[in-house]
């Protein structure tokens, strides 16, 4: 489902996987971009407290589920850190610190995290097979891409997004 999405990830200077983007938005001030970023955080992470939220930058923890491919069920979760920084007419954001926690099926038929197992994706090859790691990287790339698209929309449109979410205008059908 997310073939080759791992190619969206790069390695940073600390040899950690990173999804990094710089976006130009000419004519929009740093202050406005920061307000849009704050709005994005409040809408997408309403109950998560950011690790940092000042000086035109935001850092927040996120996580997403990974699934097995053939018979689809939860396989684990990957925690990560999202950082956003705003300047005049441009902003940048990146996702990094990807840490995989495997899931196991419990007695109630539910898949739950294995407490105490945290595997950074950079060193995961020593804990999981190459095929499994490729799958996790693909799903990480796919997650980053989806979150990136959502963030770009918020950063470009800000609170206008809310108006777009309103129900469509009513049509009067008895007069034509």
């Amino acid at each position: 489902m997310a073939n080759a999405q791992k190619s969206l990830l790069s390695m940073n200077e600390h040899n950690k996987y990173i999804y990094y983007q710089v976006v130009d938005l000419p004519g929009i001030s740093a202050d406005s971009l920061y307000k849009n970023a704050v709005y994005f955080i409040k809408q997408v992470y309403p109950k998560t407290k950011p690790m940092q939220m000042s000086n035109n930058s935001i850092i927040i923890k996120d996580k997403f589920l990974t699934y097995t491919y053939i018979v689809k069920h939860e396989d684990g979760e990957i925690a990560c850190t999202l950082s956003i920084e705003c300047k005049e007419a441009k902003y940048r954001y990146w996702l990094t610190d990807f840490v995989f926690t495997p899931y196991e099926k419990n007695r109630y038929g539910l898949f739950v995290p294995i407490n105490g197992i945290d595997i950074p994706l950079e060193t995961a090859i020593s804990k999981v097979t190459k095929k499994e790691l490729d799958g996790y990287l693909d799903q990480t790339g796919s997650f980053c891409k989806q979150l990136s698209e959502k963030l770009k929309k918020y950063m470009a449109e800000g609170r206008a997004i809310k108006k777009q979410d309103q129900p469509p205008a009513k049509v009067v059908t008895d007069k034509w």
């Binding site: 992470y45 109950k47 998560t48 996120d62 589920l65 699934y67 939860e74 979760e77």
Partner: peptide, 17 residues
């Protein structure tokens, strides 16, 4: 992909597992 964030607005429901 389910982001696993219970707090997110209108998250996709997990699939039939």
């Amino acid at each position: 992909i389910d982001t696993g964030k219970a707090a997110a607005p209108a998250p996709p429901d997990p699939p039939l597992v």
